[in-house]
């Protein structure tokens, strides 16, 4: 089956996030998932835009879903912000007739229509539910056995679970199972499920730093080979933010590599670190890559 991919604004255009796209393309290609990029994708108008005007946000997000519907395809996105927005559109249009009427009217003026029926998958859930661990395991060429990482599900892939319908967010396991399926040790550590403060950037940067400081201290205490993220904001916070927070609060030892989830899969599938954009992250990932290629895990 063919899917349309919505990459979002940040993933394809930010230095440390481009590797998320590169790795995702390689992983889906290896797994024989046929995809096409969403044409002329615009901003999914996530929570910060909802904060300004909910109706505008839903109509903007519905624009991208309307394109997917026109193509007759369901949608995959690696960005948790986009995932949350698109799930919100379907929910709002199906639950609130007055919102559907308003959004229909707005879209009509832009020459668009959207029924509310495009299925929306988060990449990581798609890999787990639609592909499965066994098929992923079939493609392993490089052993990542014994690597100890801290997995961050982030907020917007899971919460609220009634809306997103993947897994209850308090003790999720599905993405840990995927990592463990390829031999990685997914360490459970205090704070791994708590918010990174990413959405506070723009509203209150100082507060975003304070929340992040707590998360980075959690990660430092957990003694990890690396942090693994699925959310673009989590990655920006934990990767770029380590420098900011380290300086601002004078914390030593903030040098933890932060990888995108599919980068680990792609490494296990035998791809080179440079082809996955691993040299573009703010915090050097070479110690972790070295550990894998040097066989010293």
């Amino acid at each position: 089956m063919k899917y349309v991919i919505a990459w979002g604004c940040l993933v394809p255009s930010r230095r440390s996030l481009i590797g998320y796209e590169a790795a995702t393309r390689k992983v889906l290609n290896t797994l024989n998932v046929e995809t096409v990029d969403l044409p002329n994708e615009s901003c999914c108008a996530p929570f910060w835009m909802q904060s300004l005007d909910l109706t505008t946000s839903i109509a903007l997000a519905a624009r991208n879903l309307a394109k997917a519907e026109e193509m007759g395809l369901n949608l995959i996105t690696p960005c948790s912000g986009c995932f949350h927005s698109y799930k919100r559109v379907n929910h709002s249009l199906n639950e609130y007739p007055e919102m559907k009427e308003r959004v229909d009217g707005i879209l009509r003026k832009a020459g668009l229509r959207y029924s509310g029926d495009v299925e929306v998958h988060h990449l990581i859930d798609f890999l787990y539910s639609n592909i499965g661990i066994d098929k992923i395991r079939d493609h392993i060429e490089t052993s990542l056995e014994g690597l100890e990482v801290g997995l961050r599900y982030g907020c917007h892939m899971l919460k609220p679970h009634e809306l997103l319908n993947i897994e209850y967010s308090e003790r999720p396991t599905f993405a840990d199972e995927l990592l463990e399926g390829i031999g990685i040790i997914s360490k459970q550590y205090t704070g791994c499920h708590r918010c990174c403060g990413g959405l506070l950037r723009g509203a209150d940067d100082d507060l975003a730093d304070k929340v992040l400081k707590a998360r980075l201290e959690d990660a430092l205490n957990a003694d990890l080979d690396g942090i693994v993220t699925v959310c673009s904001l989590c990655h920006l916070q934990h990767d770029m933010g380590q420098r900011i927070v380290g300086k601002k609060f004078n914390i030593e030892g903030l040098d933890i590599p932060v990888l995108h989830f599919p980068q680990l899969l792609a490494l296990a599938f035998g791809h080179n670190a440079e082809d996955l954009g691993l040299d573009l992250h703010t915090i050097k990932t070479s110690s972790l890559v070295q550990k894998i290629s040097g066989g010293s895990i």
């Binding site: 394809p12 255009s13 230095r15 481009i18 590797g19 796209e21 590169a22 393309r25 990029d37 044409p39 002329n40 994708e41 615009s42 901003c43 005007d53 109706t55 505008t56 109509a59 903007l60 624009r63 308003r102 009217g105 707005i106 879209l107 003026k109 832009a110 020459g111 668009l112 082809d275 954009g277 573009l280």
Partner: peptide
């Protein structure tokens, strides 16, 4: 950066549609 990673060129968003939506939604 995208070219170096062999990623396809980023498409421009349909800005006209975005404008029309923002106009119609107030």
């Amino acid at each position: 950066m995208r070219a170096k990673l062999n990623l396809p060129e980023l498409q421009d968003p349909d800005i006209e549609e975005v404008h029309k939506i923002m106009e119609a939604s107030g």
